[in-house]
């Protein structure tokens, strides 16, 4: 699965520009599914199984967009100013490289830093494409770029940009591969525009109209030196979300996840995330509502170019996701 993760995380695709990554994933899933379609906002919706007796219509959502940049101005010397697409923290930008959807490349620089105690805002940063004038700059206002960073395989752990949430997209692809029989109608949704406000999942959930659903996303950890106080660690298994700042998981879904993990001997940990939201909220409130939750892959350094996950955790999330939908669901 490492090759798949590498392929997915290294493909550029910030929110709103998911056409390339969507095609990459479509090729992966085409032979594995009963139905593949793309909705009006660009969500890739992949169905496996038809509803048998005792089965449910389930939506599983992993977002395929990533954080990135958009050019706001090119100055007379060819420096491109930009804003963030999604939550880009300025301190992760300096020295970073940007890969634009039109193929242009560039590095991120910053105006003179007045005080080393204070990180300037993104308005002080710019992208240098090597251009010398507005005219020969390969990007223009509105052009979109993603961050560039190859995957690093540390054996037990994998590092790269956009583990959030391409690692979950890989989980969904792998789960599709592993899911042989199901009494459920399972919609694997590769959603767009999550980083700008769960927009893709909102419309996908309306279209799919699930009876139950969950997101697969990354979550923060509390296992780094003087890090946040949080009871999630790398390597301790799939994280079952109880709440994040966007929603409170349905307690029936939480129990379903815990019971399934225990019944199948899959290591898991409970997660309360105080900062961050997921597609689970969009599933929960679509139409007349659906019990919803989230299974998370623990991940360090989220929204930096070096997000780190534990490979065993990833495999355990695949197992849990697949086990959740392989059998009749009783909430």
């Amino acid at each position: 699965m490492k090759e798949l993760i590498k392929k997915l995380i290294e493909t550029p695709g910030p929110s709103g520009s998911e056409h390339v990554i969507r095609e990459v994933i479509r090729k992966e899933v085409e032979g594995l599914a009963d139905e593949v379609r793309v909705d009006a906002l660009g969500n890739l919706i992949v169905r496996k199984g038809t509803k048998a007796e005792g089965g449910m219509r389930v939506m599983i959502s992993a977002h395929i967009d990533e954080i990135g940049v958009m050019v706001t101005h090119v100055d007379e010397n060819g420096f491109a100013r930009f804003i963030a697409i999604g939550g880009v923290a300025p301190h992760t930008c300096l020295g970073g490289r940007v890969w634009f959807m039109n193929g242009a490349r560039g590095v991120i620089g910053v105006e003179k830093i007045e005080s080393m105690d204070k990180i300037p805002g993104l308005e002080s940063f710019y992208i240098d494409t090597g251009a010398t004038s507005r005219e020969n700059c390969p990007v223009k206002v509105g052009d979109v770029g993603g961050f560039e960073r190859p995957m690093l395989d540390l054996g037990a752990r994998l590092v790269g940009k956009s583990m959030d949430d391409r690692v979950a997209a890989a989980v969904l692809v792998e789960s599709l591969r592993q899911l042989k029989e199901t009494p459920n109608e399972v919609y694997y949704v590769f959603s767009v525009q999550e980083e700008v406000g769960l927009r893709g999942a909102t419309t996908a959930a309306f279209g799919v109209a699930p009876e139950v659903g969950f997101a697969v996303d990354v979550t923060r950890t509390g296992d780094t030196p003087k890090g946040a106080k949080m009871e999630v660690s790398l390597g301790k298994g799939a994280a079952v979300k109880v709440r994040d700042s966007s929603f409170i998981a349905d307690p029936r879904v939480v129990n379903w996840m815990v019971n399934t993990a225990e019944a199948n001997g899959i290591p898991y940990q409970m997660e309360v995330l105080e900062r961050g939201g997921t597609d689970g909220y969009a599933i929960q409130i679509a139409r007349a509502g659906a019990p919803a939750g989230c299974v998370s892959v623990p991940c360090r350094y989220i929204h930096s170019p070096s997000e780190m996950v534990d490979y065993q955790d990833v495999l355990n999330v695949v197992k849990l996701v697949t086990a959740l939908v392989a059998n009749p669901i009783k909430l």
Binding site: S246, F247, I248, Q284, I285, R287, A288, G289
Partner: peptide, 13 residues
């Protein structure tokens, strides 16, 4: 108190 989740979904229903 959290999401207005009941308001949206019950009104829709």
């Amino acid at each position: 108190e959290e999401t207005l989740g009941g308001a949206f979904t019950s009104a829709f229903d």
